[in-house]
Amino acid sequence: MSFSLELEGRRALVTGGTKGLGEAVVSVLLDAGVRVLTTARSIPETSSDGVHFVAADLSTADGCSAVAKAVTEQLGGIDIIVNVLGGSSAPGGGFAALDDYQWSKALDQNLMAAVRIDRALLPSMIERGSGVIIHVTSIQRELPLPESTTAYAAAKAALSTYSKSLSKEVTPKGIRVVRVSPGWIETEAAVNLAKRLAEHEGTDYEGGKQIIMKSLGGIPLGRPAKPKEVADLIAFLVSDRAGSITGTEYVVDGGTVPTV
């Protein structure tokens, strides 16, 4: 029995698609026959054949406008939006280390980029009566790390609430909106977070990993998720095989969240 996702010829925007989870999503969608446009602030040294690329800072309104324009010009429209962009670069030190700049930076990157991209591209989806939007949130909206990711966690919580509200508004118009909430994924960004925590606490990288593990309460699976494992789920969710799934959130955390 074949389990083709039947995505050939679909047009997708994947934000933050040159590293980590975003890069894995781009690869999986390409393999499924999707035409993909992706973004980052700078042109990557290497890129996958067939991927359209736009250099833009999506934490700004101008950057989002430039990407929306490129989607129209290079893809001729959009069927799938996967908002992977996100991250935290705030210093350690808890709430006192978070000034207005750090808060604004976290919100612009983790919430407003998705809001602006959706606002620009959703009208064409609604006019056509079909489309899928995936918002990548985080289990940190439930399990924030007060030492270093309070602003990030709050922004992801806002993204999750926004996504739920959006789904209720646009699902009757033919647009599915789904959240994917990863735990710790084995990406470059996760490694950098562990290193920052280690530096602040005067320990090594393994010590930084243990700080994260302890803060999360452990990972019952015994390891972080692989980027492709999460990307495979996203590919399924954007396909017609998931045609009745909307408004919900899929947690991929190896059992980290301890509650029902």
Rank of each mutant, 00 (worst) to 15 (best):
G86T: 00
G87Q: 07
S89N: 03
A90S: 06
A90N: 06
P91R: 03
P91W: 07
G92I: 03
G92E: 11
G92N: 09
G92A: 14
G93C: 08
G94Q: 01
G94V: 05
A97W: 08
L98H: 09
D99F: 06
D99K: 05
D99H: 07
D100N: 02
Q102P: 06
W103S: 14
W103E: 13
S104W: 10
A106F: 11
L107R: 08
N110L: 02
L111G: 00
A113V: 12
A114S: 13
R116C: 10
R116D: 02
R116G: 08
I117S: 06
I117H: 14
L121H: 05
L122D: 15
L122E: 13
P123W: 05
P123C: 10
S124L: 08
S124A: 13
M125D: 01
I126M: 04
R128Y: 01
R128P: 03
G131C: 04
I133L: 01
H135K: 02
H135A: 14
V136W: 12
S138H: 07
I139S: 02
I139E: 09
R141P: 00
L143T: 06
L145I: 10
T149L: 12
T150I: 06
T150L: 11
Y152D: 00
Y152M: 00
A153E: 03
K156Q: 12
K156V: 15
A157W: 05
A158F: 01
L159E: 01
S160T: 12
S160H: 15
T161H: 11
T161E: 01
Y162C: 04
Y162N: 01
S163H: 07
K164S: 11
S165L: 13
T171P: 02
P172L: 11
G174V: 09
I175W: 10
I175R: 09
R176Q: 03
V177H: 08
V178T: 09
V178N: 10
V178Y: 03
R179Q: 11
S181Y: 03
P182H: 13
G183T: 03
W184G: 06
W184Q: 13
I185T: 05
A189C: 04
V191W: 13
N192M: 04
L193P: 02
A194T: 09
R196F: 14
L197E: 14
L197D: 15
L197T: 12
T203P: 01
T203G: 00
E206L: 10
E206T: 07
G208R: 09
G208M: 07
K209W: 11
Q210L: 06
Q210E: 12
Q210P: 04
I211K: 06
I212Q: 12
M213H: 05
K214V: 14
S215M: 14
G222N: 13
G222L: 12
P224Q: 15
